[in-house]
Amino acid sequence: MDLENLLHKWLNGTATPEEVTQLKASPEYASYLEISAATAHLKTPEVASDQNYKAIASQLQPKNNVRKLFPVRNLLKIAAVLAIFVVGYLYVDSLDTTIHSQIAKKETFTLPDSSEVALNANSTITYNKNNWNSQRTLNLQGEAYFKVTKGNTFSVKTPLGTVTVLGTQFNVFSRDKQFNITCYEGLVSVAYNDTLIKLPAGSQLSIENNTLIKHANAFAPFPSWTANESSFENADLAAVLEELERQYPIQLTATFSNANRRFTGSFTHTDLTLALKSICDPLQLAFTIEDERVTIYANKSQ
């Protein structure tokens, strides 16, 4: 084996004593061994281990607090918040719209198809604006006047029956057992129980205690209440006084015995004293007003 390989073998610490002797026989390799052996005794400076670790440790602390980032987790958070907003919006959006008029207040508003609705005092309309254009249906409790734009079937549902039109002006009154429909323009069909009644312009249908009364009503182009006046024709006085209570925030007490009187005429919605006079004078009744308490009694002097 040549000496160079033996030298590497020796440097790697695997040379046999014979091989060392062999190397030492050559002056050149003997000096290599000498130099190598002397180098092995050289000392390197002391390593300042502790000092270095202090320098390192000062940089380790922040790393301990670093949490592994999950971009997906953050995305999920954002998605959850968005989902809450979207679901919340859709839920609110899908809710029915309710419009209610207080006592002594009237509401006028426009439906999504620009049909106009006038809501008389103490009445409620509920409808869903989302599918309005495909299904024009609303629920009514009380009294309202509709100016319907031409289009799909327009239905007004009341506890007593359903009024269906295609495009017209009509008034619906539905309180307790009283159900009045007045058509001012076009043609209205009224579904009551199992009967379907066609109501032409200028006519009125009254259903009172399951009795159908159909009569012409050509005197007005629109319901008088929309002009702040309530009109009655041969109406039960009790119904007239109920209407009065809806138009004025009053507590009404009637002390006269014969309540089964009929009333034909009208009263205004803007002046209580005038309205009471309009009702009481023709029927020979008297009244007193104390704050919001109104008492109507028989006028005994006459």
Partner: peptide, 19 residues
């Protein structure tokens, strides 16, 4: 590595001279 070792020793011996 072998080459570097050989070169290193040769270079050292040259500078130090035969001992």
């Amino acid at each position: 590595v072998e080459k570097r070792m050989s070169q290193a020793l040769a270079s050292l011996r040259k500078e130090i001279g035969n001992v």
